[in-house]
Design a protein around this nucleic acid. Structure first.
Lengths: 117, 117
DNA sequence: TTTAATTGCGCAATAT
DNA sequence: GATATTGCGCAATTAA
């Protein structure tokens, strides 16, 4: 990136008579203001975006927690029932072992159902 | 917030001899640079934070999706079994109706178990 | 080429 | 008193 900024402090070097020069300076100064306002807005929006995302994140984490609990509850229910007096045939070959393994990252593939009959 | 920035273009007004003045100016210019570097770093970190949060968010959303599917699968399993030929007594008073209502936002309160026997 | 937008830099007022 | 921030203007560069 090439050099920028003032190096010398000469007078209106880029221009002609002070008249046109000033017009150009004034216009540029306005452009600079616009640009800086825009820049600050963007920064602020980014900061706000962080807040939004943190909120969404919290909600999602709670949701995961809740779902995990529900799932755990159902699994316990199943297992309790199964270990006590299961009539496994009624579930038509559902492989509970596999179903209740740690499959947090698994989809709902029907690998859990093997027609063992 | 009060006025800032140059208003006049006088010479070393805040100071004394050009010597001490320049020293002060130079030190301030360095401070300005440090301050602006820091500012840009902070902005960049905020931008990065947004990326991180978006990633976490995606992961969490997938997790919710997976868990929801698993839960749905178990519920269907339950219901299918229940509607076909349930021997509900084996579940010792579990209220399937309530259990399978939309309780995404509910905890794992044992309200689902009512000793109806 | 002309004009607007960005950006590095310095000044001075102000904030800490 | 010294450093840190910040509004503002200048000029160089870049983008339209």
């Amino acid at each position: 990136m090439p050099r920028r900024g003032r190096v010398k402090k000469e007078g209106p070097e880029s221009g002609e008579d002070s008249d046109e020069y000033r017009k150009r300076r004034d216009r540029n100064n306005l452009a600079v203001k616009r640009s800086r306002v825009k820049s600050k807005q963007k920064t602020q929006e980014t900061v706000n975006r962080v807040s939004e995302l943190r909120n969404e994140n919290t909600v999602l984490e709670e949701k995961v927690k809740t779902l995990t609990k529900e799932l755990g509850f159902l699994k316990e229910l199943f297992l309790a029932h199964a270990s006590n007096n299961v009539d496994a045939s009624k579930f038509e070959g559902v492989n509970f072992q596999k179903l209740f393994e740690d499959n947090s990252s698994a989809g709902t593939s029907n690998d859990n159902i093997n027609n063992t009959s």
